[in-house]
Design a binder for these strands. Sequence first.
DNA 1: GAAGCGATATGACAGCTGTCATGTGCGACA
DNA 2: TGTCGCACATGACAGCTGTCATATCGCTTC
Lengths: 200, 200
Amino acid sequence: MIRVMIAEDQALLREALAALIGLESDIELVGTAADGAEAHRLIRQHEPDVVLTDIEMPGMTGLELAALMKREQRRTRILIVTTFDRPGYLRRALESGVAGYLLKDGPSTALAEAVRKVAAGERVISPELAHQAWSEDDPLSDRERKLLRLAEAGLDSGAIAEETGLARGTVRNYLHAAISKLGAGNRIEAARLAREKGWL
Amino acid sequence: MIRVMIAEDQALLREALAALIGLESDIELVGTAADGAEAHRLIRQHEPDVVLTDIEMPGMTGLELAALMKREQRRTRILIVTTFDRPGYLRRALESGVAGYLLKDGPSTALAEAVRKVAAGERVISPELAHQAWSEDDPLSDRERKLLRLAEAGLDSGAIAEETGLARGTVRNYLHAAISKLGAGNRIEAARLAREKGWL
DNA sequence: GAAGCGATATGACAGCTGTCATGTGCGACA
DNA sequence: TGTCGCACATGACAGCTGTCATATCGCTTC
């Protein structure tokens, strides 16, 4: 019997996934969580084989959860189930040590199948995404990424400088670097391009 | 027996919702569709009582589907199930004549309950959203909205002017109007604020 | 130890943006 | 018929942005 937990913040999807899992006779649902912290607590308590989770969750992302599992040397393995099909996300997920990455676009039959493979120690990636694992590298540095995020929110260079403790000119330098790395014409376009690739 | 159809483009969610509906003894699932056009075809064929659908779908949005039902004078009623909790969306949905608007955040028990109410002719709105029906009006004119969308994509005033056939100064005037109506500090922030409210 | 690199910074300049004053033409409406 | 509001436009100006050249400091690497 494979012991599974679901961590997903949207109640409807969480319970619908539970219903779907409930149809499988060889998989047992041992708990559900609505945010990262609760998920972590329940994992410690139940030690499930597999945790189904989204990337974006309040409190802790699915990727942070995966990294935590590795750090705590638990056998619980993380299976990401998400809408995000941006190239950078899969890469970061793999680097975080997740055991599987499924798109919500895929057929539901893939879900139970993926759970079984992950429980057996295999690594599972949505076929639509497999080719993306080798796609473009994120060219942005941490600082460029951070400043780009602030610019995206509508802060001007002065406000970003205050926020980060950098000089105003330095802010413009970093944004310039990001803009030119991304082949954009201005910071807005740069932020949009980076977000589309999953680099923000 | 209430006859229900599901129109949802994400396969996993579609089938999970089907599993959830399958648990109810007084509700019968008569079909599922992955896009708006297929949904329309199946509705004509099966004439379900209620269609569960998302707003964003390839081909035809859930709102367009609702408007179509009204135009074709069908008794089939549309129940929107979506993630979008932006004020403008609910308003637009109600104007399109949908019979219900549920958030995916809500508990799954609310789903069957909402289906029953909608089938009985009632109008259902997620309680989290009820107060938003009277929330702020969209202050933007069509032109301001359009230019704001282009600005959001990273075009500068010159490029927007070319795109729209307006003079460059006029573009800046419209954006200025949008910025000041929204209380923003620049076009980026204005676009962000408008999008958060569901006005873009 | 020298060379190279990344993070941080400054200054300068052309071009873009946000703001305001002001004007024209057109349709709506009392 | 006059007036109001809206769409569209111009010009001007301060401030912001994108770009480039250049410099310092600390860390890595051969």
